[in-house]
């Protein structure tokens, strides 16, 4: 190989490597987005992001026989196995355990079945368009659509037994428990739809979300492991949308809602994952240029490697 050719080849590979490096550098510089301000955390441990809704006021004290003092009211507490879950490039779904306890449980054993627990995990609401195909001249084409301004991106229900055995529809509806009562809002363009059409669109969303396992129900998913302790397992598929999730735990006895408890969990993108996603949406132009530079660098590097083998 002559010196001139050697020199030429040297410039070529330098160019290829240079282009690749430039791409990575530009990307790295631009992805340095200021992180959203974190709430200041004091020297003590930050309080868990949970809250207890006060139980409904206890019935007015009646005159009771002295031998039966009023039993203390039950309340429910719960937590999740992981409060913060990272979505990385190899994320293929995750499992979450929700566990909790009934204060002042009057159950004698786990099998008593005095209480019913319903756990609902719901993801951040998102906007979506639902479309319906119909046959036009032999081809299946999207012909109608409706816009939802808010649909939970994820919605999983787990309970001690089927919901209709736990409480009446009115009670379930007021708490938004069950696929029939998932909180969804239509865009105002849908105001002329009939009740049947609304039903059809809602059902379609639930059906498609269930197919993708983004909506789930386990009718016997909550199990008591003692007279007051219970637990349930949930799983989130890889396609789950990242963001804040709310876990609500409802305690029922004889169809009456005794207590609720809310706790949060966060799904965050991390690593290369977060880098690429942020870059693509915050700096789309430079992300495009970065992708092109990577492609050019890879193409040039490949041609250099394979040409050398041939020579």
């Amino acid at each position: 190989m002559s010196t001139a050719r050697l020199l030429h080849r040297g410039t070529f590979i330098a160019l290829a490597v240079g282009v690749l490096t430039a791409g990575v550098l530009v990307g790295a510089a631009l992805a340095q987005r200021p992180t959203p301000p974190q709430p200041p955390s004091g020297p003590s441990l930050p309080a868990p992001p949970t809250q207890i809704t006060p139980p409904p006021p206890a019935p007015a004290q009646e005159v009771r026989p002295a031998e039966a003092p009023p039993l203390p009211r039950e309340a429910v507490h719960a937590d999740v196995s992981t409060r913060r879950i990272a979505v990385t490039s190899t994320f293929s779904g995750t499992g979450i355990i929700v566990f909790g306890a009934v204060d002042n449980s009057r159950q004698t054993s786990a099998e008593s079945g005095l209480y019913d627990v319903v756990i609902v995990i719901s993801g951040a609401p998102s906007r979506l368009v639902a479309r319906k195909k119909s046959n036009v001249g032999g081809l299946w084409i999207n012909t109608s659509s409706t816009t939802f301004t808010s649909v939970p991106s994820y919605y999983a229900i787990s309970s001690t037994r089927p919901l209709d055995e736990i409480a009446s529809d009115d009670v379930l509806k007021s708490s938004g428990i069950g696929f029939d009562f998932v909180p969804m809002t239509f865009h105002r363009s849908a105001r002329n739809l009939t009740a049947d059409e609304i039903r059809e669109w809602r059902d379609a969303v639930v059906r498609l979300k269930r197919r993708d396992r983004l909506f789930q129900q386990d009718e016997y998913g909550v199990a008591f492991v003692g007279r007051s302790l219970f637990r349930s397992a949930f799983d989130m598929p890889a396609t789950v949308t990242v963001g804040a999730f709310e876990t609500r735990v409802y305690l029922f006895r004889d169809g009456e809602l005794l207590s609720t408890y809310t706790t949060k969990l966060d799904l965050e993108r991390e690593g290369l994952e977060q880098f690429i996603h942020r870059f693509a949406f915050d700096h789309p132009f430079f992300y495009g240029v970065f992708t092109v530079l990577i492609a050019v660098g890879a193409g040039m590097l490949a041609s250099y490697v394979f040409n050398r083998n041939k020579a």
Binding site: V129, A130, S134
Partner: peptide, 15 residues
């Protein structure tokens, strides 16, 4: 395009 799609509905996330 020609065969019945089985599921006539589809969802597209917005924003």
């Amino acid at each position: 395009l020609v065969v019945h799609p089985g599921e006539l509905f589809s969802l597209t996330p917005l924003g």
